[in-house]
Write a protein that binds this DNA or RNA. Sequence first.
DNA 1: AACGTTACTGGTAACGTTTCCAGCCTCTTT
DNA 2: AAAGAGGCTGGAAACGTTACCAGTAACGTT
Lengths: 336, 336
Amino acid sequence: MTIKDIAKICGVSVSTVSRVLNEHPDVSEANREKVLAVVRELHYVPNNSARDLVKSPSDAIGLVVRGVGNPFFTGVIRAIGEACEAAGYTMVLHQIRSGEDELRAGAELARSKRLRGLILLGGCFDYTPEQIAGLGIPFVCCTYTNSFGTLPADAYSSVSIDDRQAAYKIVSMLTQRGHRNIAVILNSVEDHSISQLRYKGYCQALQECGVEVDLELVEETVTFEMSDGYAGMERLMSRRDDFTAVFVISDALAVAAMKALHDHGKRVPEDCSVVAIDGIEMSSYSVPTLTTLVQPQQEMGEKAVQILVDMIEGRAGNRHLLLDTTTREGGSVCSV
Amino acid sequence: MTIKDIAKICGVSVSTVSRVLNEHPDVSEANREKVLAVVRELHYVPNNSARDLVKSPSDAIGLVVRGVGNPFFTGVIRAIGEACEAAGYTMVLHQIRSGEDELRAGAELARSKRLRGLILLGGCFDYTPEQIAGLGIPFVCCTYTNSFGTLPADAYSSVSIDDRQAAYKIVSMLTQRGHRNIAVILNSVEDHSISQLRYKGYCQALQECGVEVDLELVEETVTFEMSDGYAGMERLMSRRDDFTAVFVISDALAVAAMKALHDHGKRVPEDCSVVAIDGIEMSSYSVPTLTTLVQPQQEMGEKAVQILVDMIEGRAGNRHLLLDTTTREGGSVCSV
DNA sequence: AACGTTACTGGTAACGTTTCCAGCCTCTTT
DNA sequence: AAAGAGGCTGGAAACGTTACCAGTAACGTT
């Protein structure tokens, strides 16, 4: 079932059928209806490969995700998928394992699928300008910021919250409530990841009220899996018992950490307050409800697509967008 | 950057380059290495559209999902993605809104992307044999069973748990512990969905110990969002306060329902026991830990791909696979 | 020396579309 | 009446790849 068959049945040329299908103006009403009728009746759908081939490049936007399981990402992915469709593009989702190089994977995807643009979600920010230039297509980091200063701002685009500021904001809430012994659970503090930025915000909030960062209160996890949050909290508790609050890098980890506290006989927030960043659905239903800094998942996905499409269609250059966050007060914090 | 450029640079024909790329035997070692070197240096990656076009059909497997947000699905999607890649196929993910017809969307996707096979995840089971035949490609329902008897078993394949049996099993656990007033929170009991099957299992467990199903204890939700679980529980509580246990159709809804109970001063499990089906990560970290029937997400995804690939490659016909479930005992149940 | 075999190679048709170009009407304008 | 414009149409090239077919050279066999 090809465009040729349709043409033959309708007694017109393939050009005409193609024009009808692509809603070009130059075709008579009679022919348009005839073609449309046959198309509907035979359930004909154009072959995308052929279309892409001749269109060159296609209408595909790549989304490379490290850690699809992360519930925060799920919401962003959904928003990106919907925004792509609304803008007339197709989303190609590619999940990568934690060992893989995301930009390398993206580059390969970009070439083989003739992508028009690339969005990156999650991972580390250790690219070179050459790598990004090598992509040859517009590129948006979602969930990243250019705060590291390792790359010229006009080499790429980004949509994110100000991670450092966000951590500062939520940890400051703890210090304002009188907390001074504040532990932290996060991923690596070494690499160029969100984790590091949030760690800096944590340090800043502490230093501002005259507290030295105590490295024994810093607990690192390997992944964003909940089991890691639970285990991290346990390690923290086995090492120290004098902290009155803990800042966790993500909601999912925080929910698991609260569970660990509970299982070891500690009450939240009476014995230990808990705050985090993300604002995913789950953390509204934990006991107690988690106090957290909400990142707008929907908006993040929408803006990422918008910026990318603007670039693809030549309307704008690289941009860096910082989204606003809101604090969602739950019951996981008390004064000390 | 096309195969032609590579050929020109290497001083060989496009055929030779193509042969090298596709690992055909008939090419000299010298040429093979020369081509490979140039390919690597120039980061050449074949154009998939052109490949698909001539290969006809492609290596794409479609995955149509209703409700990507559902955390249970997330795990299955990940497994399907990985299994596809391992089997040499590409997964094309397509999320649909709740209003859309999933099989229709699948059919369109199948034609336009030249899919080799289709997997369906979530939704209602209201297809006709004609619709499935119209797909023209192997078709696996994941999360469905053929328990409705509305379709001949050899018209399609499925991978799922025995949903009726699962509900029976977990509700029976409640009756064995002495519960008689058992409420239930689920989606529609009308359509041909999992919801209905689980409802039947619930009814069966009750009837087996001589309890009539009390329709006032049956609460329906619109979606699988957690907010619906919370609201459903609240409606239930406002109507009745004599139930000692509740069976919730999914873990996510159950976690939200527990939160509602807690917020209204009811203790779990002392005042109300809670059980569910799914076994997602989140429910291991609720307070108390949810008692639930675990569906093997990983295995479900793997088997679905395996069955589909077997069919695509002509090794087997339609199959229906029922996966084993295991009960995960948490702290959300007590005897009465 | 003629032949068949083997190992490799290049040319080219096909895949299903879109798009450009040229051409044909018919209608309006001069 | 001639010319130009505009609406519509079909033919054909192009997109990048694979697969088939024919061909060449080197080698071993009769």
